[in-house]
Simulated assay, not measured.
Amino acid sequence: MSFLLNLSKLIDWINERVGRSVMWLVLIAVVISAGNALVRKLFNTSSNALLEIQWYLFAAIFLLAAGYTFLRNEHVRIDVITGRLSPKGQNVVDIIGILFFMLPMAAMIVWMSWPIVMLSLHSGEMSANPGGLIRWPVKILLPLGFALLILQAVSELIKRVAFITGQGPNPLEKQGAPSAEEELAAAIKQQSAGGAQ
């Protein structure tokens, strides 16, 4: 199990680095989007390449950060039922979800998207829009992003099994500072408590 936990740490490190790097793409996308809007308003002109690079950046943000989001346990969850289970029960539900839903789905997407990426790369596929960009860089994000998600799913599986067998902490416990949503909820609660007095 110690080898698997070290493997999990390595995967976490990879997705942490990728996720932190991808955060900068948000700023780049915003700057390009704002610049494109200004050019369109001020000079009554636009560029398909600038529009498409925004789409490429948004695709990169969502696909490459999926593993990072899973690492941070910030993905969408429906805790109506699992929230009532014990920590061990919650981890068992996650193991079932990872094994029977996430891993097969992500592996199928990687497997089915790879030929499309290779075809786009070998053909030199270009956008049909005048002045558009080449397509394979954005298409390769699909298998790459889902490969990172598969790696993180393996890491999360290892951590959950370690917790259930008593060899690791609960991976579902929130660690560190509260999230932005939790801070906002606390501020709203504090303001409404102050207004009620």
Rank of each mutant, 00 (worst) to 15 (best):
E156W: 09
I61P: 08
K41R: 12
K88R: 15
L149M: 15
L85W: 11
L71I: 00
L85S: 10
I14C: 10
P137D: 07
P169N: 03
S127V: 02
W13A: 13
V92N: 03
S123V: 07
P104H: 05
L144W: 13
R160E: 10
F43M: 14
Q90N: 07
S179C: 00
L5Q: 13
R20F: 12
F101W: 03
R77Q: 08
I140A: 15
L57E: 03
E16G: 06
F100G: 12
V92C: 07
A193W: 02
E173N: 04
R17K: 14
V110I: 15
L5A: 07
F100Q: 02
Y56P: 01
P178L: 00
A106G: 05
G67L: 05
I53Y: 10
S33N: 11
L57N: 04
F163A: 05
V76S: 02
L7P: 02
L42I: 12
M23W: 04
V30M: 14
A60F: 08
S86P: 09
P137T: 08
T69P: 03
A196T: 06
Q167F: 06
I28A: 15
E173C: 00
I98D: 04
V76P: 01
S192Y: 04
S2C: 00
F100E: 02
L42F: 13
L172M: 04
L25N: 04
G35C: 08
Q167S: 10
V93D: 09
H75K: 03
I96S: 02
T165G: 02
E125V: 02
R135G: 00
D12W: 04
Q191D: 05
L57S: 07
D94T: 07
S155E: 09
L50N: 12
G166R: 06
P87R: 08
R72D: 01
A66L: 12
A65C: 06
N15I: 05
P87A: 11
A59S: 14
W111R: 12
E173K: 05
F146R: 12
S2F: 03
K88T: 12
S113E: 07
F3R: 06
L5S: 10
I28N: 03
L50A: 15
M118I: 13
I140Q: 11
Q90C: 09
V117Y: 15
W24Q: 04
N15Y: 06
G145F: 13
G97M: 02
F101D: 01
L64F: 08
